[in-house]
Design a protein around this nucleic acid. Structure first.
Lengths: 167, 167
DNA sequence: CTGCACTGATGGCAAAATGCAAGCAGTTTT
DNA sequence: AAAACTGCTTGCATTTTGCCATCAGTGCAG
């Protein structure tokens, strides 16, 4: 056991990496919002993350193996952040967190429709989504014609937004 | 939406309640370690929580509806903390967190055996465990002769501890 | 009835994390 | 040449954490 760890309990070790107010928000935005650049994460942030916090979290998540950082060939100053398998494996955790939040907290309709679909889709949908993330972030090749889970989630989200705008 | 919330996203709202280094540790110890009093939580804490942090977290978790506090009839100064349904509903989340931690982090064998059993038991075992927690914390009556999931988990933990002591 | 251990906490203080606003050097677009 | 955009960085005030000592009330053994 590393002296820098409080204990070897899996719950504790998970909290030592993800137990703060922002780490999972950043991963969520990369995963479900498909945001890959610093500015995208900063400016589209629903919760209004500060730039120094975002910089710190991206650095820490790269150090801890949840993200990778690569240069963007289209722009010399641009960095592209990608999920690792470790982060992709958080999909079931997000699904459970979303389900718990929807059940017990005052969630907004448009921001919880994706959580609802993910919850109802069950383990099969999660696995499909994870495969899609592996394709997008790890370069894994999928069988052609695979329908996009993220596309379905995003579509449902936009539908709710539209419907609520009308009323 | 309350102005004190960053957004209505279920992931975000969940993080606003549970997104720190200690809240889930406290709930874990009440849930899996069956610790019901302040001192039990303080002195048996694997991670060494400080008393002021523990006091603060217990207060916040009661305020937010995850715990209830009651007087202990056997001692005028004693308080008994119980899980609410909201907290019991975190069992699947703990199961996922444990599974993720076991897969990706340097967990210790004795502290992860319970997570392993919970993971392998699947949704059925989680539901049995939740029913047991409802009996213990909410006074729900179970059919007689129901085997104890917590007993099984604790037994397995002690076996590992014993086995490792011998070698 | 008197020590003494135990009860759930508090208080002080230093260190770290967070939040907010401004700024920066280099790059690309207009 | 100017403007907008790139991933950050800096400064500073506030909040949270971590550690240690302490406390007043309770209950039990002598």
């Amino acid at each position: 056991m590393d002296a820098s760890h409080r204990s070897g309990c899996p719950i504790n070790l998970t909290l030592e990496i993800l137990g703060d107010r922002w780490s999972l928000i950043v991963i969520r935005d990369i995963m479900f919002g498909n945001r890959r650049h610093f500015r995208e994460l900063l400016q589209n942030s629903e919760e209004g993350i500060a730039s120094n916090i975002l910089a710190d979290r991206l650095k820490r998540l790269v150090e801890r193996g949840l993200l990778t950082r690569a240069d963007d060939p289209t722009h010399k100053q641009k960095a592209v952040y990608s999920l690792t398998e470790m982060a992709i494996d958080l999909v079931p955790l997000f699904a459970q967190m979303g389900a718990w939040g929807r059940k017990h907290l005052a969630v907004s309709e448009e921001l919880s429709i994706r959580a609802e679909l993910l919850e109802n889709g069950g383990a099969k949908l999660w696995e499909d989504f994870m495969e899609e993330l592996r394709a997008k972030h790890l370069g894994k090749v999928l069988p052609p014609g695979t329908p996009s889970v993220l596309g379905r989630l995003t579509e449902a989200y936009l539908e709710v937004v539209d419907r609520r705008k009308e009323s």
